[in-house]
């Protein structure tokens, strides 16, 4: 797939400690999207996932829920997000994925949505409530035509048989949910299950997400997978005064052990 080159190239050239950051479009301010992207790229992040806000985010804990609500109150919409991202590839070279619930995408129409993604240079999509069976039946051809990667989630509880199935459909990477639960709870690491999953020799790389919040948990995740995804902890950092200025110190705190200063 030619257009997944950015994700593909990344996993070709960087084999471990891949850091992906999730943030909600339109949070904390509606105009922050591009500034956040630039700062993330400058601070050495490998991948970004931009959350499409939704009124009913059932897989998310309080932090991401509130960021969704705030973003919607700010007036963020999927159309506006595409508008903001129109020229993003002039500056942002790292892979960008859109992550969100199926309903806003469904309302836009999947073909229309994917066309906009590919016009802009979005590399992939993560839709947690799009089941693989429906994807395979109704959506897959459109994703292939548009050359957009669709990333599936698995959990430590997912059976090996189902993981094989999800791996066959997933493009870009597989999103391994640290421990089955909603976002933002402290990750509990299921090393034995991660080992089971790794030993399956999947065709996709693995990134662990949900509850990765600091250097220690990032290291732990990287020990069991190709890298990790940080969401709620990053959103929390953005809740502070002067959010854009929080970004680089926060990313540094994930990548380097912290010395306590006082």
């Amino acid at each position: 797939m030619k257009n997944t080159n950015r994700i593909h190239n990344l996993f070709q050239t960087k084999k471990k400690n891949i850091l992906s950051i999730f943030f909600t479009a339109g949070f904390p301010e509606i105009s922050n999207t591009v500034a956040i992207l630039k700062e993330l790229q400058n601070s050495g992040v490998d991948i970004v996932e931009i959350g499409i806000p939704f009124s009913d985010p059932i897989a998310d804990g309080p932090v991401i829920q509130q960021s969704n609500q705030r973003a919607l109150e700010n007036g963020m919409t999927l159309n506006l997000l595409f508008e903001q991202l129109k020229d993003i590839r002039k500056e942002i070279k790292i892979p960008i994925l859109l992550m969100g619930y199926i309903n806003p995408v469904y309302q836009m129409g999947i073909e229309n949505f994917l066309k906009k993604c590919s016009d802009i240079g979005i590399d992939g999509v993560i839709i947690p409530d799009l089941p693989p069976e429906i994807y395979e039946e109704q959506y897959k051809t459109f994703f292939k035509q548009a050359n957009i990667a669709n990333v599936f989630l698995i959990t430590p509880k997912t059976s090996s048989e189902r993981i094989t199935y999800l791996d066959s459909l997933s493009e870009g990477f597989i999103y391994l949910v640290s421990s089955s639960g909603t976002t933002g709870k402290d990750a509990q690491f299921h090393e034995k299950e991660y080992l089971r999953i790794r030993s399956m020799n999947l065709r996709n790389s693995l990134l662990i997400g949900f509850g990765i919040s600091n250097y220690a948990s990032f290291q732990k995740a990287c020990h069991s997978a190709d890298g990790a995804i940080v969401g709620s902890a990053f959103i929390k950092a953005l809740q502070k005064e002067r959010p854009i200025e929080q970004i680089t110190p926060f990313i540094n705190s994930l990548l380097k052990p912290q010395t306590v200063t006082g």
Partner: peptide
């Protein structure tokens, strides 16, 4: 639209917010 795990008729905005 899709809410609470099923596709059905749904009161929503053009942007797909319930």
């Amino acid at each position: 639209g899709i809410l609470h795990g099923s596709k059905t008729l749904l009161m929503q905005t053009e942007d797909g917010q319930v």
